[in-house]
């Protein structure tokens, strides 16, 4: 990593590039762009259908959404601990923290799946109304990114367990971590936007 400002007096250095492989940051920005457009589209679509959106929103399980937010934030926290661990060369600890993050990701998927099951079995589909179209599209799209994030973390975890990372060389861990934080970050906006604000 290129260090821009190496000031021994200051507690930290400034890096030229964000953590992990720069390539993943291209994807992160592209994802932010795609979801950002969707979020804005939701808000403006709602503006034309306020009564419909407010009414349909009442049928969502806000509790599930909130718990899921807590779950993802916690799994992000675990990933931060994992990166801290490998920075000190503790591969096994790193792998365990990532395992915990994946576990919480699985909890997120489970809770979300229950929510979907509930909706689908009452006959709600993408074509039911504009609110449900957005709700299902956004959360399913996000769901797929959670899965992808978990796969990336799993690959990192396996490599960490085999001793593939060290204190000097752990770009892969930071790469996977950055992607996972993005997944969390998107949900942090999605939850209030779709479940709460009316």
């Amino acid at each position: 990593m290129i260090i821009l400002i190496n000031n021994p007096k200051s507690a930290h250095q400034v890096y030229a590039t964000p953590p992990g492989d720069l390539a993943i940051w291209f994807f992160i920005f592209a994802e932010l762009l795609a979801f950002g457009i969707f979020f804005a589209a939701y808000a403006f679509a709602r503006a034309h259908n306020i009564a419909l959106f407010d009414a349909s929103q009442q049928h969502l399980s806000r509790t599930s959404g909130a718990i899921n937010t807590l779950v993802l934030i916690t799994s992000s926290y675990f990933v931060v601990r994992a990166v801290a661990a490998i920075k000190q060369g503790y591969s096994n600890q790193c792998a365990r923290w990532i395992g915990a993050a994946i576990g919480f990701g699985a909890i997120f998927l489970a809770i979300k799946s229950f929510e979907f099951y509930g909706k689908f079995s009452s006959g709600i589909t993408l074509s039911t109304n504009t609110f449900y179209m957005f709700y299902l599209s956004l959360t399913i799209f996000h769901f797929m990114h959670v899965i992808l994030g978990m796969l990336i973390l799993a690959a990192v975890m396996l490599k960490a367990r085999r001793g593939g990372y060290s204190a000097e060389n752990h770009t892969g861990v930071e790469t996977g971590a950055s992607y996972w934080h993005m997944v969390d970050l998107l949900w942090i906006i999605l939850f209030p936007l779709i479940y709460v604000i009316h």
Partner: peptide
């Protein structure tokens, strides 16, 4: 109709 959203975005 959802294709108008997906396709556009």
């Amino acid at each position: 109709e959802y294709w108008q959203w997906f396709g556009s975005v």
